[in-house]
């Protein structure tokens, strides 16, 4: 087996599914997902030496994927501008509680909210909440201290709480209804 292939099999192969899932989870759009993956792979190509020598290449690759996906999402948000956000908010607020919880609009609202966090907050929140990575792994991927990661996660959480207050209250309504 060639050296490059060996490294790919060792580092990237086990992450393929999660990379795809992560990017799709953010973009929810075939075209954007492909574009985000291509951008992530371009970064991997440029930083391959750094990645393969990194103490936690897995976390670094997740970070790159999340970054590319949110970059795409932010671009889409800018493209759609305020109308789309207003439509989403309006749609969320008009639904019945049962509809809201599973509605695509609700998921889109969550992603839009994450898209409004700072880059590091968005990455830290996703890596922590979705990937379940430790603060230590996230700190190595972001190149900052663990305490800083904790701050990013907590500030991101509070910001999301504010941005998603409507959705959260609707969700509580559904739970009490059930």
């Amino acid at each position: 087996m060639q050296y490059g292939q060996e490294e790919y099999e060792r580092i990237v192969r086990p992450l393929e599914d999660r990379m795809i899932r992560l990017i799709w989870g953010v973009t929810k759009n075939a075209e954007d997902a492909e574009e985000a993956l291509q951008e992530a792979l371009a970064v991997l190509w440029r930083k391959w030496d750094k990645i393969r020598m990194h103490p936690n290449p897995e976390a670094l690759i997740y970070r790159i994927c999340i970054n590319s996906a949110y970059d795409l999402l932010r671009r889409r948000i800018r493209r759609e501008k305020r109308e789309a956000l207003v439509q989403v908010d309006a749609a969320v607020n008009e639904k019945t509680p049962a509809d809201v919880l599973n509605a695509k609009e609700c998921l889109a609202a969550i992603h839009h909210a994450i898209g409004q966090l700072s880059r590091h907050q968005a990455i830290a929140v996703t890596m922590r909440f979705v990937q379940g990575l430790s603060y230590g792994d996230i700190s190595r991927a972001l190149g900052c201290r663990e305490n800083t990661v904790r701050k990013h996660v907590e500030r991101g959480r509070e910001r999301l709480r504010g941005l998603l207050s409507n959705v959260i209250s609707e969700q509580r309504g559904v739970e009490s209804f059930q």
Partner: peptide, 12 residues
């Protein structure tokens, strides 16, 4: 709830 929602958003 924020954490649950974020997880859910990636669950598809």
């Amino acid at each position: 709830p924020v954490e649950i929602m974020v997880k859910k958003a990636f669950d598809e």
